[in-house]
Simulated assay, not measured.
Amino acid sequence: MALRTAPLAALLAIPLAGCSTLDSINPFGSGEKYETKILAETPASDIYDQGLARLQKKDSAGAAKKFSELDKQYPFSDWSRRGLMMQTYANYQAGDYDTAITTGKRFYQLYPNAPDAPYALYLQGMSYYQQIPDVSRDQENSAKALDLFQQIVTKYPTSEYADDAKFKIQVTRDQLAGKEMSTGRFYLNRRNYTAAINRFREVLSKYQTTRHAEEALERLTEAYLSLGITGEAQTAAAVLGHNFPDSPWYKDAFAKLQADGLSPNEDSESWISKIYRKTVG
Rank of each mutant, 00 (worst) to 15 (best):
Ile169His: 00
Ala237Asn: 13
Leu22Gly: 04
Lys179Arg: 08
Thr209Gly: 00
Phe244Thr: 03
Phe244Trp: 13
Lys168Tyr: 03
Pro75Ala: 05
Gln109Val: 07
Cys19His: 06
Ala233Ser: 11
Glu215Ile: 06
Arg4Met: 13
Pro157Trp: 05
Glu232Val: 04
Asn198Thr: 12
Phe244Tyr: 11
Ile14His: 02
Asp164Met: 07
Ala162Pro: 03
Arg185Asn: 14
Ala63Cys: 08
Ala94Gln: 14
Ser80Trp: 06
Ser77Trp: 01
Pro43Gln: 13
Ala17Glu: 08
Glu218Thr: 09
Asp23Met: 08
Gly281Pro: 15
Val171Cys: 01
Phe28Arg: 09
Tyr129Cys: 07
Asp46Asn: 09
Phe254Thr: 01
Met85Gly: 14
Ala213Val: 00
Leu11Ile: 11
Lys58Ala: 11
Gln131Trp: 04
Ile38Tyr: 12
His242Val: 08
Tyr48Trp: 13
Glu222Tyr: 10
Tyr48Thr: 11
Arg173Ser: 01
Gly83Arg: 07
Asp59Gly: 01
Gly231Asn: 11
Thr103Ile: 02
Gly261Asn: 05
Thr103Ser: 15
Val153Asp: 15
Gly29Trp: 00
Met126Phe: 09
Arg54Leu: 15
Gly231Ile: 05
Tyr122Val: 06
Ser136Leu: 09
Phe28Cys: 02
Tyr122Asp: 09
Leu176Gln: 06
Asn113Gly: 07
Ala196Tyr: 01
Ala216Val: 00
Leu146Lys: 06
Val135Lys: 11
Asp164Pro: 03
Thr221Tyr: 06
Lys256Asp: 15
Asp138Trp: 02
Met85Trp: 04
Gly104Cys: 02
Lys57Val: 07
Asp71Cys: 09
Tyr92His: 10
Ala10Cys: 09
Gln151Pro: 01
Pro15Lys: 13
Ala237Met: 09
Trp79Arg: 10
Ala255Met: 14
Ser159Arg: 02
Met86Pro: 02
Leu204Gln: 01
Pro118Gln: 09
Leu148Pro: 03
Ser142Gly: 10
Thr221Gly: 14
Ile47Asn: 09
